[in-house]
């Protein structure tokens, strides 16, 4: 009985709101994201030692995977509008993972995009999750329940010219990084906008603190000896992302 009442009430409410909408009220839209993984504008090609970082180390990428999560938009007055609490596992070798769409974005004029690299602490300590957080993706630690937020594996040429393995595995609650990027007036009102978001691996290894692969080449969050590297990565992540274009 109660249920029926509730249902009718809901239906009523819906009718009223949909009637209003057709006139003048702005309605939600959606945003299509396209992630461009690159090294200083060059697309990432898996395998060859094609790239050079700020420290002059030649390097390659055989795996590049990371989590982006908890997207929100900010209006000019600083109001934060959460748009999505999903987790996206970006894999530079899987084009399908490099685009996703966020629906039901509330109408408004936005000036900033906010998101995070990694998985928030609320979701970082359970392995029994599915979707992007399913342990099957190989992005969880073996010795503790938590996610590897970022993986770059490949090789680099050391100071003696030897090609040496490179492995960075980053991720811990303290390494969950907020990224905030300016948008040139993104107006949402029943429309679909497209944002091309760039991730520059060389930015990650340069700004503000350059990383020299001769010193840092096999690093893992949580290792006592790797704390400095971890903090450097944390401070460099925000600058590695940029809005390439908004359509």
């Amino acid at each position: 009985m109660l249920r029926k009442l509730l249902l009718t009430a809901c239906a009523g409410a819906f009718l009223i709101s949909s009637c209003k909408k057709s006139d003048s009220n702005p309605s939600p839209g959606s945003i299509q994201f396209s992630i461009s993984n690159e090294v200083d504008g060059q697309p990432i090609q898996m395998g060859p030692l094609n790239f050079q970082n700020a420290k002059g180390n030649d390097y390659s990428v055989s795996m590049l995977k990371y989590y982006l999560s908890n997207f929100s938009l900010l209006t000019a007055d600083g109001t934060e509008v959460p748009v999505n609490s999903s987790y996206y596992l970006i894999d530079a070798s899987l084009p399908a993972s490099e685009s996703f769409s966020i629906a039901d974005v509330p109408a408004g004029a936005y000036t900033k995009l906010r998101f995070h690299l990694g998985v928030d602490s609320l979701h970082n300590h359970s392995g029994t999750q599915s979707g992007a957080l399913d342990p099957v993706h190989g992005m969880i630690w073996n010795w503790n329940t938590g996610y590897i937020f970022f993986k770059h594996e490949g090789s680099y040429k050391d100071s003696l010219g030897n090609v040496t393995p490179l492995a960075f595995h980053y991720g811990s609650d303290r390494g969950y990084v907020q990224v905030e990027l300016p948008l040139s007036n993104l107006n949402i009102d029943g429309n679909t906008r497209k944002i091309t978001l760039g991730f520059n691996l060389n930015g990650l290894y340069a700004n503000p603190i350059p990383i020299d692969f001769n010193l840092d080449n096999n690093r893992t969050s949580g290792n006592r000896d790797d704390v400095f590297w971890e903090m450097t990565m944390r401070s460099n992540f925000p600058g590695a992302f940029q809005i390439i274009k908004t359509e």
Binding site: S126, G127, T128, N144
Partner: peptide, 24 residues
């Protein structure tokens, strides 16, 4: 380090010094 009994299970399966398997 492992938060609950369920989550612990995938640790040894994937760990290179243990069962070293790809979960997929």
């Amino acid at each position: 380090g492992a938060a609950d009994i369920e989550s612990q299970v995938v640790g040894p399966i994937q760990n290179p010094v243990e069962m070293h398997a790809d979960l997929a």
